[in-house]
Each structure stands twice: as C-alpha cells, then as structure tokens.
Design a protein around this nucleic acid. Structure first.
Length: 464
RNA sequence: GGCCCUGUAGCUCAGAGGACAGAGCGGCAGCCUUCGAAGCUGCGUGCGGAGGUUCGAUUCCUCCCAGGGCCA
C-alpha cells in the first residue's frame, strides 16, 4: 500500500516492530530511510535448520502458478554437426528449462527438425554426389562428415538426427520429444482456412501485419517458384500443435538472427484466436570463439566447422556448459577457448566445483558424526556471511527463472564458494566445539552448490 | 533505409529504480607442523556522451557516438 509519510518516519516504525522480534538483536535507521537489522544467533540457527530440513528441495517451488511449459530448443537444421551457436542455444535453453522445472513448472524439451526444404535437398544431394564419386555441388555441404555419411547406406537424414541427439545427450541436454517439419507441413491444408490470407504475385500471403507483425509473409510460394509451402506455413501448424497439446506456454529459444520471428509468432497466435502471451520467444546473441587471440570460424557450409563435439574436446562439458550460460542472453559471448580449457583455480567453474569437492572431503572424514546442531554464541563473521549467502539462494533461483536469466546462478555460485572458502579458512570444522553446527553448514553449502551447478548442467564432483 | 542487441575496472562479465557500483582473470605483496593451498589475506581516482522522468538513474525515456547482427 502507499503511505504518504516521510521514509524516515516509516523506517522508525519498522525498527520498533523489528526490535520486538526475538531474532533481531539491534535495528537502526540509516540514510534516507534504510533499516539495518543485526540478527542474533537464534536467527542464524533457525535459518540453517530450515535449509537443512528442506534438503535438496531448498529453493525449489517458487512458481506461484505452476504451468505446463514446452521449451523448444536447439532445433538446428540436421544438415551437419551441431555448431557452437546452437550449443549456446542448448546451454541457455536447457538452463532456463531446468530453472523452470526447479521452480515447480512441468517442463518438456522438444527439438524441431527442419527436415524439409532446400537445405535438406542440398544436404542429401551432397551425400549422393560423394556416393557416385562426383564432386559435391557448389551449393552443397562440404564437411568431412559428408564423406562419412556417404559410406553408410540409405537416407543420411535419420543418421544425422541420431548423431545430433547423441551430441546433445553428451552435452547433458535430454529431449522428451522431436517434431519434424516434414510431418507438420502436410497438415497445413487444414489450417489455411483459419488464417487471414491474400494472394499477390501468385503467392499466398499471411496478413500478419494486421495482427502486430511488421510485415506480411509468404505462406505458399507462387507456381513459378514451385508452389510449395514455406517454413512459415509449418510454423503455423507447429504453433497450434504446441498450444493444442496442452502446454500453457510455448517457449522458443532462438538466435538473434530470428528476432523478427517473435512478432510473427505473436501475430499468428492472435490471428488464430490464441492469447499471444502463451508464446514466448527467448533470443540469445551469438558466440565468437577466440583462440590464441584470433577468431575461429564457424561456417558449417564450408566444412570449416567448430562443432559442439569439438568444443567439448577442447574444453570439457562442464566448462562449456558454464561459459555458455554464465552471460546474459542479450550479450554476445567472446569465448576464450584457452581460458575456458584451463583446469586450474583460475577457472571459475573449477573454483566452484572445488568448493563442492572440498566439502565432500570433510564430510567423508566426519564419518557418522551428527550433522546440524545449535549455533555457537557468538557466531564468527564467516559463519554469518555463509548463512546469509545460503539464505539468498531461493530468491536468486526464483529471479533467474522469472527473468529467464540463468547467468545469475553462476554468479551466485562463485559468491557462495567464496564465502565457503573463507569460512573453511577461519573456522575449523572437525573436532571444534560447534562441530555439528559447522557440519550442517558444510552440508547445506554442498547441496546449494550442487544445485547451482546442476541448474546450468555442470557436474558436482566428490573428488577432483 | 527499417528493425534487434551491446557499450560498466587493463581483459571477460554481474548488477531487472535505492546506501560507498561488484566478481573472476591479469599485476603487485604476504599466508601451508592442523579437516583438500584447485585455498586464504591485502592493494582499484571504472557506468560511451548529452538531455529528460524521479525524492533518488548503471538501471526507465529521447537524441548522439561506437561495435555486432537481421531484413530490404
């Protein structure tokens, strides 16, 4: 509510109220109306006990209205190995999916294969050419993988799809389902009457500009151009398919080159009578790999590929997931491959993982000692800082999910690891008077670090 | 020409209207007879520029400059 009183007056009132709480030792008004609270051992003890009681569900379930959400991600054309740009799509989209699931939503991941259209014809033609011993057409695909596919009998597309799935599983992204453009577009005829269209130059256009888009788009090409539906026709079918399959929300994870697509999806949702708020497009900027101070090329067409599989060889899966998720999606990533490949303490992902392993070591040494107990009086500064940091986690996880901004998790995890290492340095755990309390602090920290790492697809090691 | 993204410390980046703007790396100086030193401690005249909204702007709005991208 709004109270038209000076901030300091309200702050004074809050201080008086706060002092009545048993957890509050001291309260003061500062500056223009900030209330500073000094919390006593009781507060810290209760806070830690709550965290421990929550177990690995600590911070979960922040969603006020849980939804059934589909996250469509990666969806790179199956004309070759997954390139690094799609790896960012995966790392970002999967982290968002994990955050949403952790928040309490029912999340499914889907991969949409553009397995129809010109690029796929060129892909098949390239493989066929190699099989016949002929040169690959100028417009075709030239990577080494084309030769490998040529040595396998049958349609190369299913083989390519399987390889992509394997790469993504290695990258710890698991898809519940796959959608094929070739199947969706056969149903376009049913949807055509439901759309507002017109003919121009022999082509069928969607009047998307009347529904908030910046322009109209061709749905079916003119007879001279083959008369076939465009991929935007398949978009229409696919959008309806998603919404009719029972998802409250359909999320598309798309590269920045598709920024016009957000308005297009919203427009066709409106045109078909759906709430456009159910369709959400998450855009991310590109990835520039830097190695030895030089940019690395990423052209899939030329075969000069930096594929996901290669990236994982250079830097491991943990570092790749971390570096592709720890920057805001709106920011272009300048990924220094040499720095990311560094497995020493200089690398923040290993710094955080080390904190987890260090705690695991202590807990191993603790044997079956009691974990969790009354807080010492007074607590050390490091103990208080660590508990405050742990208390931040639910809000951090909730905000990261709400803003579709997974980068908040790595940032927080570094701060938490930091607080733990300081605690470790200052406070002896095993054999100390407050051993049980401090072991509880270790256990809680270990769980939260493990959760943070899991949310961005990084493994938490017991040993390093 | 229209549209999208970005500009914060030497470098890579957090910061989603509130106090003195934070972290990692690099650099310098220290700390291991004790639970994992892949660790800890100390050292920092930085929000591209100009207006505006606000009690208050790195944050929101406008324009300009610079970089990246999409479309035509």
């Amino acid at each position: 509510g709004v109270r038209k009183q000076p901030p300091r007056a309200i702050a004074d009132e809050l201080v008086a109220k706060a002092l009545e709480l048993p957890a509050v030792e001291r309260a003061e008004v500062a500056g223009p109306g900030f209330v500073n609270l000094w919390l006593g051992p009781a507060w810290y003890g209760d806070a830690l006990a709550e965290i421990l009681a929550a177990g690995d569900r600590y911070g979960a379930g922040s969603a006020t209205t849980p939804e059934k959400i589909q996250v469509e991600l990666v969806s790179a054309n199956p004309t070759g190995p997954i390139p690094v740009s799609a790896a960012r799509n995966g790392a970002y989209g999967d982290a968002v999916a994990r955050l949403l699931a952790f928040a309490g939503h029912d999340v499914e991941r889907e991969y949409y294969y553009n397995d129809a259209g010109t690029q796929m014809e060129r892909f098949r033609a390239s493989v066929d050419a190699v099989r016949r011993g002929e040169p690959v057409p100028e417009e075709g695909y030239h990577g080494d993988y084309i030769g490998e596919l040529a040595s396998i009998d049958g349609d190369p597309v299913p083989v390519m799809l399987r390889r992509i799935e394997q790469s993504l599983e290695r990258f710890r992204i698991h898809f519940e389902s796959w959608a094929l453009q070739s199947e969706l577009e056969t149903r376009f005829g049913e949807f055509l009457p439901r759309l507002e269209t017109y003919e121009k130059d022999g082509a069928v256009w969607a009047r998307s500009s009347a529904y908030g888009d910046d322009q109209d788009w061709v749905l079916v090409r003119s007879a001279e151009k083959g008369g076939k539906p465009t991929y935007r026709a398949a978009d229409v079918v696919y959008l309806v398919d998603k919404l009719e399959r029972g998802f409250d929300r359909a999320m598309y994870v798309l590269g920045a080159d598709h920024h016009a697509t957000a308005k297009w999806y919203a427009a066709i949702a409106r045109m078909l009578g759906y709430d456009p708020a159910r369709v959400e497009v998450l855009l991310y900027q590109f990835v520039h790999l830097v190695r030895g101070g030089e940019a690395t090329k990423m052209s899939k067409r030329s075969g000069d590929v930096v594929a996901l599989d290669e990236l994982i060889e250079w830097i491991d899966v943990d570092a790749a997931r971390w570096y592709l998720a720890d920057r805001g999606p709106d920011r272009t990533i300048e990924l220094d491959v040499d720095a990311a490949a560094d497995r020493s303490e200089k690398n923040p992902v290993h710094y955080v993982r080390y904190a987890h392993a260090r705690i695991a070591g202590i807990l191993r040494n603790a044997g079956d000692a009691t974990i969790g107990g009354r807080p010492p009086v007074p607590l050390t500064r490091e103990e208080r800082d660590l508990i405050k940091r742990l208390s931040d986690f639910p809000a951090v996880a909730r905000e990261a999910a709400e803003h579709r901004a997974p980068q908040g998790i790595p940032v927080y995890a570094i701060g938490l690891a930091d607080a733990y290492h300081r605690f470790y340095h200052e406070c002896r755990v095993l054999g100390s008077e407050s051993e049980a309390f401090r072991l509880g602090l270790c256990r809680a920290t270990q769980r939260v670090i493990a959760r943070c790492l899991d949310l961005v697809g990084v493994e938490a090691p017991e040993r390093m």
